[in-house]
Amino acid sequence: MTPAEVIAAAFAVTGGIFYLAGTVGILRFPDVQSRLHAVTKADNLGLGFLAVGLAVLAGTAEVAAKLLFIWFLALAGSATACQLIANASVDDDVTEREQADA
């Protein structure tokens, strides 16, 4: 293994650990908000590490830049999705409470 491969592997494995943590969070946390908490933060970091790891192996700056850009897009997407889901879950809670009161 070349040094670059070692570094890349280290980043990828770190990313994998974050993914694993996020997934465990989804499965084990009790409600929507805390699950979101787990999955968005951990997965964003996981993907970031993975992207950095692959960028090390990429060879050209162009490919590395593309990888980082993909990470940025995924960040934007998951941040938005997180907001939307959280909002929807708050709305749901409100309706449930209203129904319970009625």
């Binding site: 997407g77 941040a79 938005t80 907001q83 939307l84």
Partner: peptide, 10 residues
Amino acid sequence: MLVLTWLARI
């Protein structure tokens, strides 16, 4: 939501 509008713009 504002955040969706933001995403759409990107």
